[in-house]
């Protein structure tokens, strides 16, 4: 009835759904909780300009855990991975290209900016 816990290799098999063991969920869960409080704690320490990078790195790591394990992308098809990749690529495109404008506006030294 239920799929075996050990058939991690059957990526191409759409019929048989991969069942992630509960222990994985619990591991991810505790990591997420711990990282939440770690990031809250680190924010109270003055790291200068590094604070935002640390905070964002932790957030990206947490999000990756959710995407890979809770959303099953690690066990998903190549198409799912492609869609996730596309999303990230276009988001970065939007953020990076607009920031490109923001970062270079003052270079000309035109008043008002």
């Amino acid at each position: 009835m239920s799929a075996s816990h050990h058939n991690a290799a059957s990526h191409d098999n759409h019929e048989e759904h991969h069942v992630v063991p509960v222990s994985v969920y619990l591991g991810v869960f505790f990591a997420l909780i711990a990282l939440t409080w770690v990031t809250a704690w680190i924010s109270t320490i003055d790291l200068g300009p590094l604070n935002i990078y640390v905070a964002l790195s932790i957030a990206i790591f947490k999000a990756s855990l959710v995407v890979l394990f809770f959303m099953h992308v690690k066990y998903g098809t190549r198409l799912t991975k492609l869609i996730v990749g596309c999303g990230l690529f276009w988001l970065i495109l939007l953020l990076f290209i607009v920031m490109m404008d923001i970062w270079t506006r003052s270079w000309m030294g035109v008043p008002g900016r």
């Binding site: 290209i97 270079w107 035109v110």
Partner: peptide
Amino acid sequence: VSSQSAYA
């Protein structure tokens, strides 16, 4: 012609 950076 907006205030977008000329480099961008």
